[in-house]
């Protein structure tokens, strides 16, 4: 096994959740963070696996795939630098029920299960961030369900491109139609037709396994409302943190797992 590389502080904080932590909280956990490179296609967890770490992507994007009883897969959520992988570790239960696979290669930092649990049990802002993120992922999964039921493959492809684009440093995405078809749980021909249409509209350009985002506004116009619903909800839940406008101080009570007061202001 490769030697552990201590994570660089500034790079760790490229992850928005870690970046939003106040310095005094970040100082406590930074020595527990380990840098890890995540190549395209790497499986972080299989459904049913015991989880050893929680991952905070900094430049990588991870897809959460639900595994069907017949082995088929469908993406239920995406976590890039705005999220984390491994919430089962703090929600209870050690095994995961979905497959986490790297869909855009890059970097992440990770933290051992025991360290994460200890930090979560302290309460305070770290715990609050993780629970808010849980809520935002619940919305993302719900919206995926709604989108699967109501929207065309082209609209779904647009939603998917926008979510990914938000988390990428550049306007290009390395991705084959086969992979997209697996993610969306549709046939490859369906993806090719939808991508071809978007290319005709001039909003993307597709060449040899790379998708270029040419006209983001144009993609937003074609997409269903689902993208907007998910990103608005993320902002409602976590935007205040990201803008360093932290909620009222939260008491640390180690005996309990949840220490929130109700005196929080409603987000708008």
């Amino acid at each position: 096994m490769a030697r552990k590389i201590k994570a660089d502080e500034n790079e760790s904080r490229l992850n928005h959740l870690l970046g939003a932590l106040p310095d005094e909280d970040f100082v406590r956990i930074k020595s527990q963070l380990e840098y890890i490179k995540l190549p395209l296609g790497k499986v972080l967890y299989e459904s049913g696996d015991k989880m050893s770490h929680i991952y905070f992507p900094t430049t990588a994007i991870i897809s959460l795939l639900y595994i069907m009883e017949n082995g088929g897969t469908a993406e239920i959520g995406i976590a890039g630098n705005n999220g984390l992988i491994g919430m089962a570790l703090y929600m209870g239960g050690e095994t995961t029920s979905s497959r986490a696979i790297v869909q855009s290669g890059g970097d992440a930092v990770r933290m051992k299960a025991a360290d994460l649990r200890a930090e979560f049990a302290r309460g305070g802002l770290f715990q609050d961030l993780l629970l808010r993120y849980t809520q935002s992922l619940m919305t993302q999964i719900s919206q995926t369900a709604v989108c699967n039921r109501l929207h065309t493959i082209q609209q779904q492809l647009c939603r998917w491109l926008l979510i990914n684009h938000d988390q990428l440093p550049a306007d290009k995405l390395v991705m084959t139609h086969d992979l997209i078809a697996n993610m969306l749980g549709v046939r490859r021909e369906g993806v090719s037709t939808a991508a071809g249409k978007l290319q005709e509209l001039g909003v993307i350009k597709y060449s040899r396994g790379t998708i270029y985002i040419v006209d983001r506004k144009g993609i937003e116009r074609v997409a269903c409302e689902c993208y907007q619903v998910v990103s608005t909800e993320y902002d409602r839940l976590l935007g205040e943190y990201m803008r360093k406008n932290l909620p009222a101080p939260i008491a640390h009570i180690s005996a309990s797992v949840r220490q929130r007061t109700v005196k929080e202001k409603a987000f708008t």
Binding site: L131, T134, Q135, T139, L237, R260, V262, E264, A266, F267
Partner: peptide, 8 residues
């Protein structure tokens, strides 16, 4: 429980 007074 998850940190916000309301949800969608």
């Amino acid at each position: 429980f998850l940190g916000t007074p309301s949800s969608p």
